[in-house]
Design a protein around this nucleic acid. Structure first.
Lengths: 295, 295
DNA sequence: CATAGATAACACTAAGCTTTGTTAAACCTA
DNA sequence: TAGGTTTAACAAAGCTTAGTGTTATCTATG
């Protein structure tokens, strides 16, 4: 598998297959920063993708093997492997690495996250069209809503009250003029970077907003789902607090289920999906609720 | 201050560095930020302090005047003035700037903040001695508590539950291991960078912690004060939520009053002050409550 | 309307951060 | 214990960005 002449990764480095850094690292933070890809980071991504591909193809691999494959130093490969192991993509053992059983799906979904930035931005744009000056809105814990929050600054519509339990959004809206921010407190959950629990639910229960924007990890035609009960309860509280409930769903989440049922799709006043969503899916969904297709 | 011959700091202009570089750090922000001061930023702070000092001394100043004073370009002075105006320290008008009426106190307090870093750190150290593993504590909206929060990482005592309504502390404890963070939500107040209001008070009311650490802007022997009613109500709620109430007061706040009365000093179980506090003040205070003197 | 003052746009610089490599020490495992 | 493997520590290089200056354009004020 090793080339003989020049390091094989040079070509890959030049073409730069990967687009952006994966969103997993610092939570979802990296998706929030609109920092440029950086040629160097891109090379790193390319290299890691090559490593993952190789490990997945062969099942296992030694570090030396990967060193030759990538043309990078032993230390760099180790560092890559540490990161990949931390992200649960591969498993390290003395002498090499092996593919995680679930890696096939995991990593492909990771790749998709990269792509979804565009989709989520489209959803955010479509959602922002529903906003009017003076409105009070609620944003749940989701990357899509983070994009929506960022949009609020651009379209200079008047004063707006925004309620959220998602720390990155708070951080974002903190300095935004014309935005009255109401933070929902509670038990801080580091994996979601948000405040959850009873206290959060009570705080939400005391509020009523004009529109609540939600997103969840899976949905079918009839039902929405999420894998974590703690999140489900908070989302339900939020739904109850909104006079209008709008669901934002990027393509990767459609036609899938998760452990816990959140709510029937008919509970939402509007579901926003991306263009490219299968026609029949949209049609069937339209029998339950209003559907907006975002450019 | 201006020399008559050539600009007094041509050399500085050429090198692009301000003449005074042995400056103290300035501004509350740099004290709260955990990032290094950066030589460049420091020069900038020094320059701004010089500007403020000059404007306060003379009441008004022209931009050209300040250009000569600082050795910076017109544009840079304008940028500084914009920032100072935004912070409410000076007022800009066509042709120059004037000192804000309330600036004298404001800015002098800004300078004090710089010095107080040492004092506040001492208070934080003394306060941290009272902590034990497994404890639940509450931290109010104050810089002193920010120092205390930062300390939590260092002394690796076991698990700790921390409640706060102060966003910088949340941000800080977010990634800290062994800390269970409970965020108090509410109306976000940008001047305090904290969540206040009814919602916050209710959230606090639902909690009880072992110790609550507070700080306020002014105190006499018998009473504590704060200038803002919104803050007072939240602090009172916090006091009620703590089985033990500890007050941290740096020297600049002693023997002063503010508009609103917060609570009698006897309501606190312990008051921590810095070494150097007048002996008789401490003695008199000891008739009301326990007093700890921090190195 | 003329002119000083203010802003905007662009370019340059230096500092910091991230990534990578190198070397040395520590660590397994056979 | 000897071999390679892993980690730690330091150093180098590129990239990014904050801060500043210069020039040009816009704006206000007499």
């Amino acid at each position: 598998m090793t080339t003989n002449g020049e390091p094989p990764n040079l070509a890959a480095r030049r073409t730069g297959l990967s687009t952006r850094r994966s969103a997993t690292l610092g939570g979802m933070t990296s998706a929030t920063r609109s920092q440029p890809p950086s040629r160097r980071t891109q090379a790193r991504e390319t290299r890691q993708q090559a490593i993952v591909a190789h490990v997945m193809a062969n099942g296992v691999a030694t570090v030396t093997e990967l060193t030759e494959l990538t043309g990078a130093s032993v230390m760099t490969v180790h560092r890559d492997l540490d990161e990949l192991a931390r992200r649960g993509v591969v498993r390290k053992f003395h002498g090499g690495v092996s593919a995680q059983p679930s890696t096939v799906f995991e990593s492909s979904s990771e790749y998709r996250v990269t792509v979804q930035v565009r989709e989520k931005e489209a959803l955010a744009t479509a959602a922002s069209a529903l906003l009017e000056p003076g409105m009070s809105i609620m944003l749940d814990t989701s990357t899509t809503n983070l994009f929506l929050a960022r949009r609020l600054g651009d379209l200079g519509l008047g004063p707006l009250t925004v309620v959220t339990n998602y720390l990155p959004i708070m951080q974002l809206l903190r300095t935004m003029p014309d935005v009255h921010l109401i933070g929902v407190g509670g038990d801080y959950n580091s994996t979601h970077d948000a405040f959850l629990g009873m206290s959060a639910i009570e705080a939400i229960g005391a509020l009523t907003v004009d529109v609540v924007f939600l997103s969840t990890s899976a949905m079918t035609i009839g039902t929405t789902y999420h894998q974590e009960p703690d999140i489900v309860t908070v989302k339900r509280a939020m739904m109850a607090a909104g006079q209008r409930r709008i669901l934002l769903m990027d393509p990767t989440k459609l036609n899938r289920t998760a452990l816990h049922r959140l709510a029937p799709t008919s509970d939402f006043h509007d579901v926003v999906v991306n263009a490219g969503t299968p026609r029949d899916f949209v049609d069937e969904l339209r029998e339950r609720t209003a559907v907006t297709v975002a450019g």
